[in-house]
Design a binder for these strands. Sequence first.
DNA 1: GCTATGTGCATACTTACGTCA
DNA 2: GTTGACGTAAGTATGCACATA
Length: 281
Amino acid sequence: MLENQDLRLSLSLSFSENKTTNPLQLNSWTDSFPSSDRNLEKCRTFLKGIDVNIIPTITEEEEEEEVGVSSPNSSISTLSGNKRNEREIINCCDELEIERECSRSISDEEDGETSRKKLRLTKDQSAVLEESFKEHNTLNPKQKQALAKRLGLRPRQVEVWFQNRRARTKLKQTEVDFELLKRCCENLTEENRRLQKEVQELRALKLSPQFYMQMTPPTTLTMCPSCERVAGPSTPSASGPASVDARANQMVLAQQRPVPFNLWTASPVPHRPINALHPRS
DNA sequence: GCTATGTGCATACTTACGTCA
DNA sequence: GTTGACGTAAGTATGCACATA
């Protein structure tokens, strides 16, 4: 659905790739909190029942409050580590909080324990969100609030949508980058193979100086179009077997040096051997 | 000025639900 | 009607930046 659009999205996101993930991370509420804690059980029970499909009737006051704590984890997961968990316990077990949350979720309680109703955004809502995402891929609290009001959603929902949207964009970008790097790698591999072959040829030439003796030495400087290195003129003293050997050495060295190469070129410029190695017939 | 702590926000990863072939 | 794949809303853990005591 959004795939095509996604690829057209801004490809210039700045990614912080260096985050490490904790392999031991706890993945569930149950893991985080011992089941013996009665208050926590209470919290768990009421949180399970939150029905996101029902737009809560939030008073102005509550709305403001929600903006104030509008982080992704405003109710539960903003806090990090044990200290955060302790604070969560205090917050989420606050009687007023519980009352408020329960009032939002009565309908769900009847559905059973495991129900976790999910809101499906309408096309219009998605379109508006997409539009604003194109403008800014992050929202400040005011923008979030305005958008939520406009769409009849909770700020938290807008926030989550943006989080997920950023994640999707990044995923797409990663896929694109991967493809580019893959192609680049293939090109480099091919280039490397070709250069290795040339090195082998040059080494073979080095071992048979008689071949050079029959060569017509180049009379002018010859620039290799690919590696932009000069093959070197024949000097008056460069006619004996020893200098031929030196020249062959030079060639080998030149070939072993880094070659300027456009990583993003699908088909690299053919690296043609320079004239000195391919004597004119 | 330095340090500890709290807070807000972002991201990565995961779960669970809705949709569709 | 069932099922599996896929998309996505939402939950969770964690790190970083900044403010403040």
